[in-house]
Write a protein that binds this DNA or RNA. Structure first.
Lengths: 153, 153
DNA sequence: GAGAAGTGGTTAGCTTTGCTAACTAATATG
DNA sequence: CATATTAGTTAGCAAAGCTAACCACTTCTC
């Protein structure tokens, strides 16, 4: 995905498509870069992301977690199993409806996530740090936009 | 990764880390959303990305391609094999140094990529289309920044 | 110029993450 | 009560990533 074109001369037409292309590419490369860091630190991106939701969005059912994370239930089952195995989250049956399982962060999970917060995206943070404030703002806005955009895919 | 916080009240301090967090999260969710589309269309994101480089960055050696795409050589070997299998790229030995292989896009590969350009990220494009022009600009700038940031990870 | 060291790619083999299909258990509905 | 729906799991597959080990060449060094 490399539809480069000097920023000045662009046809009004292809704008969205071009930007989509560039974002796609950037996202791929960004995650590839971060994966190494994540792995090294001990928790893969998907697990980290799931744990984060569990920690911040309180106790949550597996299905809801899958929906939020945009994966299918079986995938989430496995992610949660891995997190449970490492005692980062705990499962419990709902009293009323015995089909549903609630996922809750353990103290260990919360600690790991919160404490490792900076560590976690340290590589990215440190790459971001030297940027201009305006650039950081741009990225911030873009990230928020993208989250909304992604929700609708 | 859900370090939400209302945009108004944020400590100057954690800025880069917070943004890093949010970007990481957005990238994950974005790609998860797109993956389905890509698959449906017949070419996974990594293959698409690699093909794109081959098409736009001309004939390229496998090692260089791996470097550009930020993956290890064995991974790229397999990606290229898949693309070759579908006759989207062709390999050839270097005349001078017989260790290196050059990867070149076939007419079919070029056609597929160029013609399918919009199709490819259509879902993303159509989600982007209704955005304000200013928002598109923000995303465009952000994508360019991220590409640079990703390079350095 | 022959042996050692280095380089480009591939193969083998493992892990993780994603999926669908099929199943179990529990609840809701007619 | 029988049937349909819903939540989650299991089984089994494919893709993409890695490292380690290896081959085939080049290059370097003595």
């Amino acid at each position: 995905m490399t539809g480069q074109r000097s920023p000045g001369s662009r046809p009004r037409r292809a704008r969205a498509g071009e930007v989509a292309d560039r974002i796609h590419s950037a996202a791929i490369h960004l995650l590839r870069g971060l994966r190494r860091q994540d792995d090294k630190w001990g928790l893969s991106a998907p697990r980290l992301s799931a744990l984060s939701v569990v920690v911040f969005a309180g106790p949550i059912t597996l299905g809801e977690l899958a929906r939020v994370e945009q994966v299918r239930p079986p995938t989430m089952t496995r992610l949660v199993q891995a997190l449970e195995w490492e005692r980062l989250v705990a499962r419990s049956r709902d009293a009323g409806d015995k089909r549903v399982t609630w996922i809750k962060a353990t103290a260990r999970g919360r600690r790991l996530l919160l404490k490792g917060r900076k560590e976690r995206v340290r590589a990215l943070t440190s790459r971001l740090a030297p940027l201009e404030r305006a650039e950081i703002d741009t990225l911030d806005k873009a990230a928020r936009l993208l989250e909304v955009v992604a929700r609708g895919l």
